[in-house]
């Protein structure tokens, strides 16, 4: 057993638990987006960041991946933490304004509007990659992946057309935190027409 403090409360954990595991076991809520219990933690959305303090030093770590360690002093809702969450949510509001889930979450942090440009008012996808990971780790189908990188990144099957790896199980739709996969699903699951023109230049 390890002992640490979360928000000033002494809690116990076992080696191998993450900070998120430990907090949740003790009824402390930490918001998450890219986290789902069925797949390996990813540490991408950074909404679950918590502050670790040690003397005058402090740093933020993603609680879903950071292991519980003896003597940690963890703060789950400090100003530093909330500043990160508020900015991420505000930026998500401009990035995927169509998602009601994001709007609700942002409202909880007092973020009602965004001061950034909205490029696609229909967008819901936050690119958390949960669908991709669920497809690989839960289903084993590997039908979808991230495509491209950085700001151009999107989610889809190869060539963004239905491929024959998809088993149309809908796990991606179920794990999607914003409902974005629902619309995308139609572009993934279609039964592929047999590709006649398979040939290789040589």
């Amino acid at each position: 057993m390890l002992s640490l403090t979360i928000d000033g409360n002494k809690v116990e954990a076992e080696a191998g638990w993450s900070l998120l595991d430990t907090a949740r076991q003790n009824g402390i809520e930490i918001p998450t987006l890219c986290y789902h219990e069925a797949v390996e933690p990813f540490g991408a959305c950074r909404l679950c960041v918590v502050e670790l303090r040690q003397g005058n030093n402090s740093r933020l770590v993603a609680s879903c991946v950071y292991p519980a360690e003896q003597g940690l002093d963890v703060y789950t809702a400090s100003e530093k933490v909330n500043n990160v969450r508020r900015w991420i949510l505000e930026m998500l509001l401009s990035e995927c304004p169509a998602s009601s889930e994001i709007r609700e979450m942002a409202a909880q942090y007092g973020v009602q509007t965004t001061r950034f440009e909205i490029s696609d008012p229909e967008q819901e996808c936050i690119l958390c990659g949960l669908c991709v990971r669920a497809c690989a780790q839960v289903v084993g189908a590997n039908a979808i992946s991230t495509v491209g990188r950085g700001a151009q990144k999107e989610i889809g099957s190869p060539y963004l057309t239905p491929g024959d790896d998809c088993v149309a199980c809908g796990t991606c739709v179920t794990v999607c935190p914003t409902g974005a996969m629902s619309a995308r699903f139609e572009r993934v699951r279609g039964v592929p027409s047999v590709v006649m023109a398979r040939s290789v230049k040589r």
Binding site: A44, C45, V84, I88, M91, G150, K153
Partner: peptide, 21 residues
């Protein structure tokens, strides 16, 4: 950096373009 960001974590993927904006 916007062009080279891998796009995995949100603060970087979303934040850098917004700084540039």
């Amino acid at each position: 950096l916007e062009e080279e960001s891998c796009g995995k974590c949100f603060p970087c993927r979303l934040g850098v373009p917004r700084l540039r904006e």
